[in-house]
Design a protein around this nucleic acid. Structure first.
Length: 490
RNA sequence: GGCCCCAUGGUCAAGCGGUUAAGACGGCGCCCUCUCAAGGCGCAAUCACGAGUUCGAUUCUCGUUGGGGUCACCA
């Protein structure tokens, strides 16, 4: 049988990387076996509706490379794929359950439920007291006729225990007393998330339910529904949570479910910070899953390779901490392995901002590639091109190069004219002048490179070496700056 | 608090009764070197604790501790 998985996000306008990783694993679970990956929008909560939020979902999946086979935007044989367009489907199923004695009308008011909870003792948590579970039929008819608002609740088993199998966690057993008579249809006639989920997954032919481990303890309730309908229970794959590390008010280090306090957690937030979509996906794939076989110890994967390598048995059970440092490293790997065209397409906006001409692109790529871990760093790396302040002359002193104020003065004095006389301003020409001079004087290259680079850049740290700095600056600007620096040295 | 789940270095993690307990990020050191990177080499750092099973436990069982999750007319 063909595997079918689904990603069922709510349109909140924000895609948490935790949700995205779930989507990734859903996609990989299906695609590894040549199955289908379905997108379903769960928008039954009218109050939380956010304008344009579904577009965020489409854009995220597209940018992330998770192409769905069926969904609201592309259709499919199991539509509609938006829950609000399926609204009339759910209630008949619930009514059927009532008829079969597996669910019941509950007329309890919100106030009564609130009181119930308020009456709980300190630290105690109480569920619904099943007040309406066994109402006499006459009373039910009466209330229905009188138009008393009601919800439909599932009759959960009262005794014994429920066991089910999960591909990651193994057999899970829960005492049935723990199971609440959950609401299936709300007073407004809308289905609850849990109920709609089961109906949709079944009617859409979902074979593998992949979701976060927070659903581990409520799964028996889902299964009770499948059983009540006589439907086949799907294969469950529960995923470990993604955590974040932070410092609490007592200065203690704590881990908790990844949230905004830990930094950027939205997919597009990370993209805006300069993380490449491919790198983000690559990194989160490795958060909670470890490749094996021919892919053992592999760190960098294309989506196709991930699809090939993905294996449910490699999924870990314990929660993992999101490590921004490692993400940064993965991102840097992607940058280093980029072809020139791709590199330029990412770097160009920053080049344009600095007014860099296209003849510098090749050199820039060469020196920037090993030095930026995110493209957003380009501007600061090249700041010396546009800023040339009255820097501290102490920069000319460098112990390892044996450079001093005096040596700098002498070298600049003798080297500037030779540079100015150069007909061709390229790497070889510049290097030949400088190393030739060093050789003639019996100096180490470092001794002459240092003051020239510092004099031209005005900062201690530059991407690339002396010749590269001079080329990026251009001949006129280089000579002008070196003259200025020389004069300041007196 | 009840219930469920989890437990190898700072982090991601391999391991599936006998290993010098992989690898990666990060850290540190060395090399290279005109700075910063990149690259190369190397170092430090892990089986939470206590019983039991076994000739032998990181690995199996139980308990303790710790962590996480969950208990809505939210999704």
């Amino acid at each position: 049988m063909k595997i079918r998985t689904r990603f069922a996000p709510s349109p909140t306008g924000f895609m948490h990387v935790g949700n995205l990783r779930t989507a990734l694993y859903e996609y990989l679970t299906a695609k590894h076996e040549g199955g289908d990956f379905i997108l379903r929008i769960e928008d039954t909560d009218q109050e939380r509706y956010v304008e344009g939020a579904t577009d965020v979902i489409y854009n995220t999946l597209k940018t992330a490379g998770l192409n769905h086979d069926e969904g609201p935007d592309i259709g499919g044989d199991f539509g509609p794929y938006v829950q609000s367009e399926r609204l009339n489907m759910y209630k008949p199923y619930a009514e059927q359950l009532v008829k079969d004695g597996k669910a019941y009308y509950c007329f309890c008011s919100k106030e009564r439920l609130d009181e119930l909870r308020a009456s709980a003792k300190e630290g105690e948590v109480v569920g619904y007291d099943r007040h309406c579970r066994d109402l006499p039929q006459s009373e039910i008819d009466e209330k229905l006729a009188a138009g008393v608002p009601y919800v439909i609740r599932q009759k959960a088993p009262l005794t014994g225990e429920s066991t089910y199998h999960d591909c990651v966690y193994g057999d899970i057993t829960i005492p049935n007393e723990e199971l609440d008579d959950q609401v299936l249809i709300k007073a407004d006639g809308f289905p609850t998330y849990n109920f709609a989920n089961v109906i949709d997954d079944h009617t859409m032919g979902i074979t593998h339910v992949v979701r976060g481990s927070e659903y581990l303890s409520s799964t028996p309730k889902y299964n009770a529904l499948y059983e009540a309908f006589g439907w086949e229970i799907p294969t469950y794959i529960h995923l470990p949570l993604i955590m974040g590390k932070s410092i609490d008010e007592n200065g203690k280090e704590v881990v908790s479910k990844l949230s905004k306090r830990h930094g950027s957690t939205g997919f597009f937030d990370l993209v805006n910070e300069g993380f490449l979509p491919e790198a983000i996906m690559n990194y989160i794939a490795l958060l909670g899953w470890c490749p094996s076989g021919e892919f053992e110890n592999r760190e960098i994967f294309t989506m196709d390779e991930l699809t090939k390598a993905f294996d449910i048995h490699g999924i870990s059970k314990s929660p993992s901490v999101f490590d921004y440092d490692k993400l940064e490293w993965v991102n840097a790997e992607y940058i280093k392995n980029m072809d020139s065209e791709t590199f330029l397409s990412h770097a160009k906006p920053y080049y344009d901002k600095l007014g860099i001409s296209s003849d510098k692109y090749a050199l820039l790529e060469e020196i920037l590639k090993p030095r930026v871990t995110r493209f957003t760093q380009i501007e600061e790396k090249l700041i010396f091109l546009t800023n040339y302040e009255e820097f501290d002359l102490a920069l000319f002193e460098h112990k390892k190069s044996k450079s001093t104020l005096d040596s700098s003065r002498e070298i600049l004095n003798e080297v500037i004219p030779s540079l100015a006389a150069l007909a061709s301003w390229d790497r070889d020409s510049i290097s030949n002048v400088l190393t030739g001079y060093a050789e003639a004087k019996g100096y180490k290259n470092a001794l002459v490179m240092w003051p020239v680079r510092i004099g031209a850049a005005g900062v201690a740290v530059t991407p690339g070496g002396c010749a590269e700095v001079l080329i990026l600056l251009g001949k006129d600007e280089s000579i002008r700056r070196l003259d200025t620096a020389f004069k300041r040295l007196g």
